Amino acid sequence: MERNTRQRAAILGAIQRAGRPLSPAELHTLARDEAPALGLATVYRNIKMLLLDGCIREVDLPGEAPRYEEAHLGHHHHFKCRVCDCVFDIADCKTDWHAFAPPGFVVDAHEITLFGTCPKCSGQAPLSSPPHSADGHSHG
């Protein structure tokens, strides 16, 4: 049981350190820093447990396998870099989405994903010091 707890803590720690949604493969790579013997099948089993426990939530992007982030994060959106495939959080949501709905429609939820190139892949310096990705580079 201690092994499972250590592995689960390593996976959750990887999500917390990354500060962005991670794929199971990214989770596997990052969590192995703390649990070197961690296998990919174990990552998938622990993802299920962490979802059931309410510690993490799924991030669904069109046409892709889910990624995972901390569950306590409030409403926010995502940006996906088309070059490195990393997904990043967009914290602000200041748009009045009701203005975009057809007349008579009521908006009760929305999800937005922006696509483009992150600062690392476009060769531009980020505006702030963002978290490190699975490849060890800063992204913004």
Rank of each mutant, 00 (worst) to 15 (best):
P62E: 14
I90G: 03
D85Y: 12
V87E: 02
I56M: 07
A101S: 12
D53E: 15
C93Q: 05
E34C: 05
A31C: 06
P102S: 13
A37E: 11
F105L: 14
H28D: 10
M49S: 11
C55V: 07
E58Q: 14
H77E: 14
C84V: 15
G39N: 08
I47P: 02
E69W: 03
L50A: 10
E69K: 07
P103S: 10
L38S: 01
I90R: 07
R32T: 07
R32Q: 04
G63Q: 10
L40C: 02
H28R: 05
L52F: 01
G104Y: 01
D60F: 14
L61R: 09
D33L: 15
H77F: 12
D92T: 04
D60E: 06
V87G: 03
V59A: 10
K48T: 04
D60G: 05
I90F: 00
E34F: 01
R82K: 04
A35R: 00
Y44N: 08
F105M: 14
A71L: 06
G39A: 09
P62H: 09
A99F: 00
H28F: 15
D89P: 02
C55W: 05
H28Q: 07
E70I: 13
P103D: 10
V43R: 01
R67Q: 09
D60H: 11
L73G: 02
L27G: 06
L40G: 07
H75L: 05
E34K: 01
Y44K: 09
R82V: 07
W97F: 15
T95M: 12
D92F: 06
E34A: 08
E34Q: 04
D96V: 13
D96I: 08
D60T: 15
Y44V: 05
D53G: 07
A41R: 13
A91G: 08
R67S: 08
A99Y: 01
G54P: 09
H75Q: 09
G104E: 02
D53W: 13
F88A: 04
V83H: 11
G39Y: 07
E58N: 03
H77A: 15
L30Y: 06
H98T: 06
R57H: 07
D96F: 11
K80A: 15
C93D: 04
K48C: 04
D89A: 10
Y68K: 01
L61Q: 11
P66M: 08
C81W: 03
H77C: 08
C86Q: 07
H76C: 12
W97K: 13
A65P: 06
A71S: 08
L50G: 06
A65H: 11
D53T: 06
L51A: 01
P62Y: 05
A99T: 13
T95A: 14
I47V: 15
H77N: 15
I90K: 04
V106H: 09
C55P: 00
L38C: 02
A35M: 08
H76I: 09
A37H: 09
L51W: 03
D96T: 14
K80D: 03
C81T: 05
I47H: 06
K48I: 00
N46L: 13
I90H: 02
L30F: 05
D85G: 04
E69M: 08
V83D: 10
R32E: 00
N46T: 03
L61G: 07
R57C: 09
D92Q: 12
A91P: 03
H72G: 14
T42H: 05
C93L: 11
R45D: 05
H75F: 10
C81E: 02
L38K: 02
K48M: 03
V87K: 01
D96A: 09
